[in-house]
Design a protein around this nucleic acid. Structure first.
Lengths: 204, 204
DNA sequence: ACGTCAACTGGACTCGCGGTACAGTGGATC
DNA sequence: GATCCACTGTACCGCGAGTCCAGTTGACGT
């Protein structure tokens, strides 16, 4: 329960890497137990089935992503007080982070499960839903703050605008995966930034 | 070879509906043959394996989507000669079309296969790639035409801007699937339209 | 020193699914 | 009447998920 790390986390590490590389269905329990150097029985001791594994993976992934966004925009806020610039800087940091991943971002677990959702039970699907609603809330909140000191040059719905962050990231990752290029997602974020720069003008 | 339609197409119809609903892996050959009312042998007579089915499905889907875009923007061009307005109208038509699908758009086969690509052979992956590159080319071409009579208020890469169409659509569809809402994709397209309206200004 | 519990190992088994192989059949066509 | 296409139907294989369970090993309390 220390030297060879917590077995459960080790399973999740191996599984996450494999799933991001080739998808959930294509990842066999056989290969997970081989990677984690445990027996099949050991695997089922920790997770009653693949669904439980998916659930645990999603929970961990979402938590990590939340923490990452928290950190990113906290750093952005340190660099600039203005709400719009804070958003712009945060997005820039996000884009840079995505670019720095040497072999491109592994792809988003959310989208990957969204497209195979019948494989999973309600718990997994709800988790997925809550994650995206969380992002909407986060970004909507930021845009509301921006709206206090800026007008928009065209009418926009702030929920939809918040969703657009998720949308361009997820969409960019889809392109990236399919094209085998490396920076579509960060490119898309930078374009979205351009949109925001054009959209918001300081209140008179 | 007529009354009960071409069996091959019937298989593709059933398979496409099932795959869009629950993903490729979750769709069994058993259920396809049941739906198409043929025997297992009959299925393998038409497709040597599931990969061949995926390939045929993608080919058909991409062809249909190309035709749809062709038609959409042809109609847009009839309504307005100006290159920018033609783009804006085409996107509006696209958004409306996505909204009119009663139970939401079934989701895009491209993204769905992109996230399970290790299941497929090189032929399928290349098809996927070509489809997206085709969209890039199409939209890039349209933006080049727009650039002849419009300046951009911020510098943008036209390839990336072309990709943004695919990106917001695919991203919107991911949200739609995960959230079980009905119009995220069309909302995102409308926001992208707003972006274009702000980005391009007539040349002086 | 003894019991106990958590964290496994290992093996045997079932089931569903993808895929193979192949013999046979009914209907259209030449 | 022969040929071929488009199947049907059945038998069979291998793999991966999931179940069951008996047994082991080490830490910890009394």
């Amino acid at each position: 329960m220390d030297q060879k790390v917590d077995t459960r986390s080790r399973i999740l590490d191996i599984a996450e890497a494999a799933v991001l590389e080739k998808g959930f269905e294509a990842t066999s329990i056989e290969e997970i137990v081989a990677g984690a150097e445990i027996s099949r029985g050991g695997f089922f001791y920790h997770f009653k089935d693949k669904n439980a594994l998916a659930r645990a993976m999603l929970e961990r992934y979402i938590e990590a992503e939340e923490a990452l966004y928290d950190d990113l925009f906290a750093r952005a806020r340190e660099l600039n007080d203005d709400s719009l610039h804070c958003m712009l800087i945060g997005l820039k940091l996000l884009a840079e982070m995505l670019e720095d991943m040497p072999s491109g971002h592994p792809g988003c677990v959310i989208a990957s499960t969204a497209y195979q959702d019948r494989l999973f039970d309600k718990g997994v699907r709800d988790l997925n839903r809550q994650a995206i609603l969380g992002w909407r809330k986060r970004f909507r909140g930021m845009f509301e703050e921006i709206s206090e000191s800026y007008d928009t040059r065209q009418p926009v719905d702030l929920d939809a605008l918040g969703d657009m962050v998720s949308s361009v990231v997820e969409g960019g990752l889809v392109l990236q995966r399919a094209l085998r290029e490396h920076n579509n997602a960060s490119e898309q974020i930078m374009l979205f930034r351009t949109f925001l720069k054009l959209l918001f003008v300081p209140k008179t």
